[in-house]
């Protein structure tokens, strides 16, 4: 994605940002209000937590397989390969989050770099 934001005054840009903050807070405030009368240990809230995990995981998986934005310019095989490598390291190192993350991101960086240099 390239190019600059054009045709907007500074005041309009800040007004937009204010509205974006407000519509984001809507979810935060709504969730807090809905939940006021519900027992924290109730099955409903355990289900809601599972929905949050499922939603985030779907988002991550979508970014790896079908990204939009700047990652669109990278290869599917690099993204999936780096992720798989990260998970292998993650389990080899007894589910170490740092090892998994840095292995996956490191592998991805190396793959993209090697491709830009024409090595792959």
């Amino acid at each position: 994605m390239t190019g600059e934001v054009t045709g907007m005054t500074t005041a309009y840009i800040w007004a937009l940002l204010g509205m974006a903050i407000a519509v984001t807070y809507l979810w935060r405030g709504l969730g807090t209000t809905i939940v006021a009368g519900i027992d924290p240990d109730s099955p409903v809230l355990q289900w809601v937590a599972c929905v949050a995990y499922g939603l985030l995981s779907a988002l991550i998986s979508r970014i790896v397989f079908l990204p939009v934005g700047v990652l669109e310019n990278t290869e599917l095989v690099d993204r999936v390969g780096a992720t798989v490598f990260g998970f292998v390291m993650f389990f080899l190192f007894k589910k170490h989050i740092g090892v998994g993350t840095l292995s996956a991101a490191g592998a991805f960086g190396v793959l993209v770099w090697a491709r830009s240099q024409g090595f792959i």
Binding site: V64, R79, T83
Partner: peptide, 24 residues
């Protein structure tokens, strides 16, 4: 910042959360 650094930083965030959840 070269391209490979930018995309790696963008990739880092989702992949980090993947491992945070996988360690649950």
């Amino acid at each position: 910042m070269p391209f490979y650094v930018t995309v790696t930083l963008v990739f880092l965030n989702p992949i980090y959360f993947a491992f945070v959840f996988a360690a649950m």
